[in-house]
Design a protein around this nucleic acid. Structure first.
Length: 274
DNA sequence: CCCCTATCCTGAGGGC
DNA sequence: TGCCCTCAGGATAGGG
């Protein structure tokens, strides 16, 4: 379940490993992962190119190549981008292997294959909506209270549903939405248009706060997430509500309530959160 | 417009 | 020990 902090950790790790590297010996696995243009075209398009930059947009990883193409990777639920020594044992669900010119390999593996990989020029990727309608970047310098207010004020959905929608704020998922709502003391089941100005402000502050802390902890490894060196993140120890339904609130001791909102398991403290 | 559900998919965990 | 069922969920599509 990689969300913004996990993807950011991977992007930072990837930058040091692949920037400036030439890509060779490209091999692909299950074709369903390669959404555009085709597995064969992606192999041909990667072979012999050099990596210029690695960036993140929402939960998407964008690797810009000297060919003019961008490689876009979304990790879905269980996707991993790993850098290992060339010739290291190949996992069961490895779908992409690329040789780097410093003797290592970049690999993509994904048991559930919810992840996806696309390759094309920026114009191609825009046209096919490779990264559809991504909203505000909550860790960007220009993350703006007024724009965030507009996201919440224009809808009557539950807060959980609104924040899961990547077209409003991009990068949040189930874990960090519940955590941010706890910090902001607002129930994720609340209707957005009924939130007060103070509550919207509290969320505006809490979202970057929790994301930033999680990045410092190199992400949350609940069961599956690993960074590019296959190491776990430590933010799980800091989670206050996610995965803690039925257990006592760390702030007040009240039993945390677990429900479903926006189609997702949702946990909150009925005493701390209004 | 909003909600819920199904779909994709595998592995973990519980019940028996 | 092992089998079967359920559940987890990011994104998206479709029905109520």
């Amino acid at each position: 379940m990689p969300e913004l902090p996990e993807v950011e950790t991977i992007v930072r790790g990837l930058r040091g490993e692949v920037t400036g590297r030439r890509l060779t010996d490209v091999r692909v696995g299950h074709p369903a992962v390669f959404r555009y243009p085709s597995p064969e075209a992606i192999v041909a398009g990667l072979e012999g190119t050099r990596v210029e930059t690695v960036a993140r947009r929402g939960k998407y990883i964008v690797v810009t190549l000297d060919s003019g193409d961008d490689l876009v990777v979304h990790l879905g639920m269980t996707g991993h981008l790993l850098v290992c020594e060339a010739g290291a044992p190949v996992a069961v669900h490895t779908h992409l292997r690329v040789r780097l010119d410093h003797g290592r390999e970049l690999r993509f593996d994904d048991a559930r294959r919810f992840g996806r990989i696309l390759l094309g020029t920026a114009a191609d990727l825009l046209r096919i909506r490779a990264m559809p309608r991504l909203g505000l970047e909550p860790l960007a310098d220009d993350f703006d209270a007024t724009a965030f207010d507009a996201v919440l004020r224009r809808t009557s959905r539950t807060l959980k549903a609104a924040l899961l929608d990547q077209s409003g704020v991009s990068g949040l998922g189930n874990i960090y939405i519940d955590e941010a709502c706890f910090i902001a003391r607002v129930r994720p089941t609340r209707r957005c248009h009924r939130l007060s100005r103070a509550e919207r402000r509290a969320l505006f502050v809490a979202i970057p706060l929790v994301l930033h802390q999680a990045v410092l902890n190199r992400g949350t490894t609940f069961d599956d997430y690993r960074d590019v060196w296959n190491a776990s993140g430590s933010h799980r120890e800091r989670l206050q509500v996610y995965g803690r339904g039925g257990r006592p609130c760390l702030h007040c001791g009240t039993v945390l309530r677990q429900t479903v909102a926006g189609g997702r398991t949702t946990v909150f403290c009925p005493a701390c959160q209004r």
